[in-house]
Structures are given as C-alpha cells and as structure tokens.
Design a protein around this nucleic acid. Structure first.
Length: 478
DNA sequence: ATGTCC
C-alpha cells in the first residue's frame, strides 16, 4: 500500500495541480499531457514551478514550442466569463421527502439556481450523485447538462412477458439458470462474437470523432450488461389491471426483466462532454458538475446526437438480451415494456414552451406512458402507467433508492444473513455482492405510496432468478 | 456508471 502511494506521488497528477489552484478542465488536461510528454526528466517540484510560471504569465508562452498550447488554453479560459448562480432559487416539488437525505436536497437546490433552469422536481428514491442528484428531474431552456443526464446515458429497464405459466419457473430452475449464464454477460466479460445490430451502422459513429474512437469497444460490448445495480432476471409478473394496454388476461406469467445502460460508450461520451461543458461554462465550485452546453452551439448539438446514439445503443443491448433469452425459451414474448431513466428529452411545459427535461434516475410518467420501476433483487418491481402530474414534470422514481452506501453495505452486512433471507424468499442470485443486498434499498412499497399521484400500478413483478455482475457463486445458497 | 486519475 505504501509503495503504491510512493509510486503515485512521483508522477505529476491532476490532484497535485488542483492543490496549487490550477484551473480545471482543458488547461489542467493540457498541462498533464505536456508534462508527461516533454518534461518527464524534470523533478515534480520543477514541473509544478514551470506550470506556475505559465499560469502567471500565459501571454508570454503563447508561441512556446511545447508550452504554447497550455498558454493558449489558459488564455481561452481567462476570456470565458464566469457564470453566476441566481440569488433566489426556484421552487421544486419533492415526493417522499421523509426518506430523502440532506445531500440530495442540497444538490437539487443548487440546480434550481442555475440561470438556465426552468423547473425541477425530486423523486422519492433520490440520493446524492455528481451534479444533479440521482432521482432529480430538471427542465432547462435550450441547454443540456451532461451530468444532468448521468454517466450511464440511456440506462433503462426492459421487460418481456411470456405466454408461459409462472409454475414453469419452479420446475425448471436449473435450465433457467443456465439460460442466464449462456445468454448474458456482465462487467468486463462479453460475447466471443457479438450479434449484429443495425445501431452499429449509425452515421454518428463515423461523424463524431469521440464517438468514432469508442466504436470498436461498443461493438464488443453489444448485448452485455454492466456492473453495479445492473441485472437480468427471470421472475413472475402478475397483471392486475384488466384494461391493460397489452390485452393480457389477468394472471401471473413468466417474465424477463433487465436493467442496464450504454456501457463504455455512454460513460465515455458523458465524461468527454462534461469536460467540454466545464470548459465553456465556468460555474462556482459547488455547481461545477452542472456545467451545461448551449443547444445552439456545435458542442451542444454534438452531445445531443451522441446522447441519442448512446440511448439507442442501450436499447439495442436490451433487445439482444431479450432476443437471446426468448430464443432459449423457444417462444416470443406476448408483451414488451421498455423505458429509459437517464436521459434528456425535448418536451413542452404546461404553457407549451419547449424545455429540455433531464431525468437522472427518473422514469418518464406522462399521462398513459408505461414504465417499469424495479425494487431490489428480492422485492417486487412494478409495471406502471404515468398519470402526467405536471409538478413532477411527468416523472416518477426509477427504483427504491439506496439507503446504504456500497462501502457501508460491505462493512456492516453479513453474507450468511443475506443468503438466509434470499433462500427464505425463494430467490436465487448468480453473481452480485453485499452492496446490492435487498436491505441497502428503501422499502419499495413506501416509495410507491409516496408517488401515487405520479403513477398507477398495472402489474407486479417478483424476481426469482437474478443474475448480476460478480463471482457467479458468491450469493449462492445451500 | 466506467478497463473507474485526464
């Protein structure tokens, strides 16, 4: 451990430059590149001194053979006018406030002071994130905030309902487990030969340089799920609404539910355009991750196209997951439901004005819009129909929301206890780990109760065989 | 969320 720190400290890092107040964004990135390309032989202290000299008098270094680009980046930044937050923040509606921690409110309040903010709302599963809280909904005017969309662009839910009686599940557990093992991939694993999908032919892959760089890995990761809270699971779904849109008779069916996003593609698009935004939109420190791109600029248009591509890519991954599992089951689904919950949409507000609605961990819930709100690996998820509550900006929660951080879960929970609870509930889990155990989430029933104005329940899903990222034997019971 | 500090 000590060795590692010592090694790290000899190489100039972003943190060293932040300490001396070096401007974040492009100047910092350029500085590191130049130092690590041309000045590796210089000691760290001398490297810092050199950069401080450029920072103090960038105009004198503009034409310097190696330091010129850095000087220009600093000058460009100095020319960018800082953006002030509004003194008075706009009001926003909160659902299920009693279950939301202070950090999420604070972040939402900063977001409500942005000069581009039009309206906002906080969902009952809200918790702290980067910039906008997870569970935050923010409508802006002609501006898109990359971290208002989130890192996993287009992350979504997808469900297939089969004309198979739910009793099939208990009789065929081993076969279904094998289907999940054969047809899903998590984390750093992928399929040997990914299945073709037309999303890979999209022009954005050749027209946007950053997106072009990400194409090969995106192809390799097609049809895969990621890590963290991503899952693919078999379960039962009980259709409770006789007037459901699918024309399904009331009853309980076999179903597949998946949760995942745009993998490396979306994550890298998010990271890249957040940096671009922070270069052109200089916000006070506490708001810096809310940097936005004006949609009338080239960068704004480019992000919008890249974001939409990442969303469609996430959708393609889900479709392939369900396509593979349907083939393994030897049948086609009777009904499918899909919704993203990390995205920005062009929508109209109540007065007909076009706004950019960011939903960062929030389910679209316009009147009559169907969506899926998952609970946890052991608790129910819900097929929901939006009621179109304007105060929520036509949104609802995207899950139960965490009550315990990942590190806290690893520290305080007991694996045998969790295994015992899963066994008792008749739920098998492949992979995953303690930081996704059911008790790290809020009570989904309470969360649903706090958003009765936002959605009505069409059906209830109960997970039975769950696959997540991690050692496949880890959560195994018996 | 992510081959996770440029």
């Amino acid at each position: 451990m000590k060795k590692k720190n010592k090694q790290k400290s000899t190489k100039l890092a972003a943190s060293d430059l932040q300490k001396i107040g070096f401007p974040a964004g492009k100047p910092l990135g350029t500085a590191l590149n130049i130092i690590h390309t041309y000045y590796t032989d210089l000691g760290k202290n001398h490297q810092i001194e050199l950069l401080q000299d450029v920072m103090a008098a960038p105009d004198q270094y503009q034409l310097h053979a190696t330091l010129g680009p850095l000087a220009q980046a600093i000058l460009a930044r100095n020319e960018t006018k800082p953006v002030d937050l509004k003194q008075e923040r706009q009001e926003y509606k909160v659902y299920g406030a009693e279950g939301i921690q202070e950090g999420a409110f604070q972040q939402m309040e900063i977001a409500m002071c942005l000069p581009v903010t039009h309206a906002g709302a906080l969902m009952p599963d809200a918790h702290q994130g980067y910039g906008l809280p997870i569970g935050g909904v923010l409508a802006t005017l002609n501006a898109v905030i990359p971290y208002g969309v989130g890192v996993d662009i287009g992350c979504r839910m997808s469900m297939s309902i089969y004309d198979i009686h739910h009793g099939f599940l208990n009789k065929n557990r081993e076969e279904l487990k094998k289907m999940l093992m054969d047809n899903t991939r998590f984390g750093f694993t992928s399929f040997k030969k990914p299945m073709y999908h037309e999303v890979m032919d999209r022009h954005e892959f050749s027209e946007i340089p950053i997106v072009h760089e990400l194409k090969d890995r995106a192809y390799q990761q097609l049809g895969t799920s990621g890590g963290g809270n991503h899952f693919v699971e078999f379960g039962t779904v009980e259709i409770q609404d006789a007037n459901n849109e699918f024309g399904l008779p009331l009853g309980t069916y076999l179903s597949v539910l998946s949760h995942s996003g745009s993998r490396g593609l979306g994550a890298n698009i998010a990271g890249y355009y957040t940096k671009v935004a922070m270069d052109v939109c200089r916000l006070p420190l506490e708001a810096k991750h809310l940097a936005w791109l004006d949609l009338d600029t080239e960068a704004g248009q480019e992000y919008w196209m890249a974001m939409n591509l990442a969303g469609d890519y996430a959708s393609a991954c889900h479709h392939q997951i369900h396509q593979r599992l349907s083939a393994a089951l030897g049948t086609e689904p009777m009904a499918t439901i899909e919704n993203h919950h990390n995205f920005a949409w062009k929508e109209k507000d109540a007065k007909g004005r076009e706004v950019i609605v960011h939903r960062k961990g929030a389910t679209p819930a316009g009147k009559g819009v169907l969506g899926i709100i998952p609970g946890s690996m052991a608790t129910p998820g819900f097929i929901v129909r939006g009621k179109g509550d304007p105060a929520s900006l036509n949104s609802a929660s995207h899950g139960a929301g965490r009550v315990m951080s990942r590190t806290q879960a690893q520290k305080t929970l007991s694996l045998p206890d969790v295994q015992k609870q899963l066994k008792k509930a008749g739920i098998e889990v492949i992979g995953s780990s303690l930081d996704e155990a059911p008790m790290v989430y809020k009570d989904i029933h309470k969360v649903m109760a706090s958003q009765e104005d936002l959605v009505e329940i069409v059906g209830t899903f109960q997970p039975k065989i769950v696959r997540m990222n991690g050692d496949e034997k880890y959560m195994e019971v018996d």
